[in-house]
């Protein structure tokens, strides 16, 4: 990052005192601070989620990105709708777990996009014994096993080590005639689940 930064703002040939001090400070910062890697789980998780959304979006004309943080118990889902809220959601929900390695994403995205008619519920494999929250995708089917255009997100805790123990389900309507060529509006759909309750904030 510093290489790019130097092109952006540092004097190549310092002349006045501030420039000299600045050059020295930059050098010290590059030698000591820049060697430290900021701690975050975001890069893989986020990039993974966006990629997943992109893969699904290519097939479904919908985008989805989400992130689950066991620490804060926030799950964010970005949904694309062709008709807006009033017309319902055209949703494609990825099933994710923050403990899943990023390599599982392409397979997951591909699986989500196939939507086999007989599918009723899927869950991502995750390390056993790890207390985690998970998202499960479910597509309702009729008696013949055909998709009914209804998608559900189930948030559950695998181990009852937290303050809630019941799966939380939110159904998302997908209208049959909801497709449109116009660019879909995007909404952030956020769930917070603590103490056994679910708060929805559509913003």
């Amino acid at each position: 990052m510093m290489d790019e930064a130097n092109r952006n703002g540092s004097p190549d040939r310092p002349s006045d005192p501030l420039d000299v001090e600045l050059a020295q400070a930059e050098a010290w910062g590059a030698a000591h601070l820049a060697t430290l890697t900021p701690a975050s789980e975001l890069p893989n998780d986020s990039a993974w989620a966006y990629r997943c959304g992109l893969e699904i979006g290519r097939r479904e004309n919908a985008g989805v990105a989400r992130r689950a943080s066991a620490r804060s118990r926030w799950v964010s889902v970005l949904l694309a709708s062709t008709g807006g809220i009033a017309a319902g959601w055209l949703g494609a929900i990825a099933t994710l777990s923050r403990f899943d390695p990023p390599e599982t994403i392409p397979a997951l995205a591909a699986e989500s996009s196939r939507r086999p008619p007989s599918m009723s519920e899927r869950e991502i494999d995750r390390p056993t014994g790890v207390p985690t929250d998970s998202l499960v995708i479910e597509e309702s089917t009729d008696r013949q096993g055909a998709p009914r255009g209804r998608w559900a997100v189930i948030v559950e805790q695998v181990e009852k080590s937290g303050t809630y123990d019941k799966p939380i389900r939110t159904d998302l309507e997908r209208p049959d005639d909801g497709r449109s060529d116009s660019p879909p509006p995007y909404y952030l759909w956020r769930q917070r689940f603590t103490s056994g309750s679910l708060e929805l904030d559509l913003s």
């Binding site: 900021p38 701690a39 975050s40 975001l42 890069p43 893989n44 986020s46 990039a47």
Partner: peptide, 14 residues
């Protein structure tokens, strides 16, 4: 977005 998240995500979090 993916590129930005991959390259700068940790720095943004910091």
């Amino acid at each position: 977005i993916e590129r930005l998240a991959r390259r700068y995500g940790a720095a943004l979090v910091l």
